[in-house]
Design a protein around this nucleic acid. Structure first.
Lengths: 170, 170
DNA sequence: CATATCTCAGGACAACTGATATCC
DNA sequence: CGGATATCAGTTGTCCTGAGATAT
């Protein structure tokens, strides 16, 4: 994490260009920066990034509740792994598990007051960080619209090929 | 990973909306889809996603070579972890390590012919996948321009605050 | 000598796989 | 009974931390 002093690296190690790189490379790179910021912010708030994302998904579900399997589908994780994550979040008091009265195989996962509070706090900090970037409003809304359009395409696509949604198809 | 048959989940577990969600949430979600596709494609080619990304960065470096530390900065990883990754990639014959004649503390990491070949192959497949999404050309170029603009902002930002570039400050 | 770069060994942790219990 | 849901146990694997080696 040093880059201030000492002998500068030779020029050929300095820059990298994304000339022919496609959208995919750019999205990955964007995600890298975003993830760094999120790690810092979530860390300060005392929650892991991956856990915050689960709470964030939950926050945007109708009624602020969902089921483990549904969360797995959205986030591309296994049910076994999700159980562990939910254990952590439940132990922290950020969500509760309760049996679904309608279908008792199911477990309903609900965001608690404190869970809502922390994910909202992290989200607000993230918004502040985003605002501080100096992105003009025009581009911001254009970018949002593009992203939503792309997301729609992705969702259509994974609805069409559910089997390789997770890249596990033969 | 089931969503085709069986009793549908109740409505309240079905949809999630990103109403007030900012760019960050969208980028994370985009990355999720992209990562799924990449996992599938890279997996078929016999390389891990994380490893492919290292090769991809290398491919876009002038001269197709860089140093471990530089890669760590770009990808936000520790040098120790990078050593292990480079061990893997070197063992696979995708890159070579050689001492820097100018500064012999340094190691120069160079993409091999085979390394260039595999990362190019994966990249082409990714392009094909991207083309298959049905994104019209106008939006595609707009999206690209937006992404590049955002990336510039991010880079300025991390140049301004190098200490918390990795979220490890204080 | 203090700093920079890389490597190595040890440890931590999250996530997956497969099997089990419960329920439709 | 077959399919679905969630959990548990065991394992894997990657990454990080901190110490050490070599060079400046």
């Amino acid at each position: 994490v040093t880059s201030s002093s000492g002998p500068r690296p030779p020029d050929w190690a300095t820059d990298l260009d994304l000339p022919d790189a496609g959208l995919v490379a750019r999205i990955i790179r964007l995600n890298l920066f975003v993830t760094r910021a999120l790690d810092g912010i979530a860390g300060s708030a005392g929650i892991q990034t991956a856990d915050h994302i689960v709470l964030g998904v939950l926050r945007r579900c109708p009624g602020r509740r969902s089921t483990p399997t549904r969360l797995c589908e959205v986030l591309g994780r296994s049910t076994g792994g999700m159980t562990l994550t939910l254990d952590r979040l439940e132990a922290a008091g950020w969500l509760t598990r309760s049996p679904d009265p309608v279908d008792r195989r199911r477990v309903v996962v609900s965001l608690t007051e404190r869970g809502l509070e922390i994910t909202t706090r992290v989200n607000d900090a993230l918004h502040a960080w985003e605002d501080g970037l100096g992105l003009d409003e025009e581009r911001r809304s254009a970018m949002t619209e593009m992203a939503d359009h792309l997301l729609e395409l992705f969702e259509e696509r994974s609805a069409a090929h559910p089997s390789d949604a997770l890249g596990r198809a033969s």
